Computed example of a mutant assay.
Amino acid sequence: MSARTVALALALALTFVSAGIASAQTPTRIQQFKAWGAYSYKSGNSTVCYVLSVPTTKEPASVDHGDIFFIVSQRPGQSVSYEPQAMVGYPLQANSKVTVTIDNKNFTMFTKEKAAWVENAAEEPALVNAMKTGHNMSVSAVSGRGTKTSYAYSLQGISAALKQIETCK
């Protein structure tokens, strides 16, 4: 990741945590694994860890997408294990769905403002496993203005990054 991407990732982390945790500290990058970085920060008495990547392509190319990320977080203090989340740089269409496609398998996410989470939490482990074993990942969304967007992500390094945050405490 470039220095700009790392800075954006740190800024994102502050946004990411501010939605649910007011007292979050500045995140620290643990290590970079090809396309995926592993990060952590303190939240109260617990540590939150996550892996993050940015898309390799953004469609349509003619629009300003803002900062786009895909995150998988570990929040042991909240009993959250490997929670996938898509974050975009624009408001998503209200009540729309985001689709994550890994190879030929689709996962549906619900949206709120600029983020999306797996609609059926029981499918989170299957999505994370598909990320570890898959070759291609894309995320499709609809902006608040009705623009259909899509993002391609590299899955190189995801397994190593997830392993790095496995023991997050």
Rank of each mutant, 00 (worst) to 15 (best):
T47M: 04
I68Q: 11
V80R: 01
I30P: 05
S43H: 02
I21S: 03
H65A: 13
Y82M: 13
R75Y: 11
S40A: 09
V54E: 12
K34H: 12
A35F: 06
Y82D: 15
P55Y: 01
A38C: 09
F16H: 08
D64N: 15
V17E: 04
T47W: 03
R75W: 08
D67A: 15
S79E: 12
P76G: 07
W36D: 03
R75S: 12
Y50N: 00
F70N: 05
E83N: 03
A35C: 08
V51L: 05
Y50M: 05
G66K: 10
P55H: 04
F33I: 07
A22H: 03
A24F: 01
Y82W: 06
S40V: 00
D67E: 14
P27Y: 00
S23M: 08
G20L: 11
V17R: 01
H65I: 05
T57S: 13
T56I: 11
D67P: 15
T28R: 11
G44F: 00
V72L: 08
S18G: 14
V48G: 06
Q78V: 09
S79Q: 14
G44T: 04
K42Q: 12
D67C: 10
I68T: 09
V80G: 01
H65R: 11
P55D: 09
D64C: 12
A86H: 06
S43G: 13
A35D: 11
Q85Y: 01
A38H: 01
G66L: 03
S81I: 11
F16T: 02
S53N: 13
Q25I: 02
A38V: 03
G37Q: 12
I30H: 05
R29E: 07
P55A: 07
G20M: 01
V51S: 04
F70K: 03
A38E: 03
S62M: 08
I71G: 01
V17S: 04
Y41R: 00
G37T: 05
I21F: 09
P84S: 09
V48I: 10
F69M: 11
S73L: 09
L52P: 00
Q31G: 11
K42M: 01
Y39R: 04
K58S: 14
A24C: 12
L52R: 07
A19F: 08
P76A: 06
V48E: 00
A86K: 10
K58M: 13
I21K: 05
T26M: 11
H65F: 12
K34T: 13
T28G: 01
A35R: 09
G20H: 10
K58H: 11
Y39P: 02
G77R: 02
S62C: 14
Q25L: 03
K42D: 06
G37Y: 00
Q74I: 02
A35V: 13
R75D: 11
D67H: 15
S62A: 14
